[in-house]
């Protein structure tokens, strides 16, 4: 009788022991992401009062490298942690909030779930649109397996004298699609030095890095928070192109050499981004 119990126990422990995968180094995957035409939009919702946000910014940057520059990043400063003079701190005087960023944040409820958090191509999963930084890689990997249903080409002309940018964005669909597709064109800026709370000593001084370098900071959505419709409605056939041109006068804080145009096309109903593209203002 006792032998029977011993056999049961040994069998069940063997069953579990068999459920062990010991991984040997190297632990980092070595996949090739440099082929493929799909690009993914990563919106990193952040704020200078969020001490976990520098880690998310590092992750976003690493993902851009890891996925062979097929990730387009927008740093959206919105919500509680992005308030200027947060908690009365005069060092946190910068205001990177934008009308578009706040509109998106309210619609998708990102900062309401805490910072840092993000949107990836604005896809909606079982728990909603908001995706935590540690799930970004997984979602991006999945999306990059697809072919792009549209290709975006950006041409920028910047007049140094007038400080006026003329950006032309061509969207060419590569597959038949249906629905109302809209184009959003934004300006982002790198290399902005301003104080940022930080808790990771590997990234910079803690608890505040007064010389923190903010990258991909959303400055403005040139054609509005929800952009402009390309096709109105109905279906779009493959190889159909739409050309849009916008002009934007730069304010003094926007350093042209550090600025980029980010353009992305999305489906009006689902908000899902079809394709994204980025080009330096002076490129």
């Amino acid at each position: 009788m006792k032998t029977k119990y011993i056999i049961i126990v040994l069998f069940l422990f063997a069953f579990i022991i068999n459920s062990c995968d010991k991984v040997s180094p190297p632990f980092v995957e070595g996949r090739d992401y440099c082929s493929g035409n799909k690009k993914v939009l990563l919106e990193d919702y952040t704020g200078h009062g969020c001490n976990n946000c520098p880690e998310a910014a590092v992750i976003a940057h690493d993902l851009q490298d890891f996925f062979c520059e097929r990730v387009v990043i927008i740093g959206v400063h919105a919500g509680y942690f992005a308030q200027p003079y947060l908690n009365g701190d005069s060092l946190l005087s910068a205001d990177f909030n934008t009308e578009a960023g706040t509109t998106w944040d309210n619609y998708f409820g990102v900062s309401a779930q805490g910072n840092p958090n993000g949107l990836i191509d604005r896809v909606k999963g079982p728990s909603g649109y908001v995706i935590s930084k540690d799930s970004w890689a997984k979602v991006i990997d999945t999306l990059l397996q697809n072919n792009a249903k549209a290709m975006i080409t950006i041409n920028n002309e910047f007049n140094i004298d007038t400080k006026i940018l003329t950006t032309s964005v061509q969207t060419k669909f590569t597959e038949d699609v249906s629905g109302n597709y809209k184009l959003i064109v934004c300006i982002t800026q790198d290399n902005i030095i301003a104080p940022q709370l930080n808790k990771n000593e590997e990234i910079g001084p803690t608890p505040m890095d007064i010389n923190y370098v903010h990258n991909h900071v959303l400055r403005k959505a040139i054609n509005g928070a929800w952009g402009e419709s390309l096709n109105g409605s109905g279906t779009v056939s493959a190889n159909t192109s739409y050309d849009k041109t916008y002009t934007q006068e730069f304010v003094d804080d926007w350093i042209p050499k550090n600025c980029h145009i980010v353009a992305f096309v999305y489906h009006e109903d689902t908000k899902t981004v079809l394709q994204a593209e980025e080009l330096g203002v002076l490129e």
């Binding site: 459920s19 062990c20 995968d21 980092v28």
Partner: peptide, 25 residues
């Protein structure tokens, strides 16, 4: 007493080689 527990989660992480079966005893 003794216990053994295992979880199975498919490796969907593109950056790291993930153990799909992780056991504890």
């Amino acid at each position: 007493g003794g216990s053994a527990v295992s979880k199975y989660q498919s490796d969907q992480n593109p950056m790291y080689k993930m153990p799909q079966n992780v056991a504890s005893f």
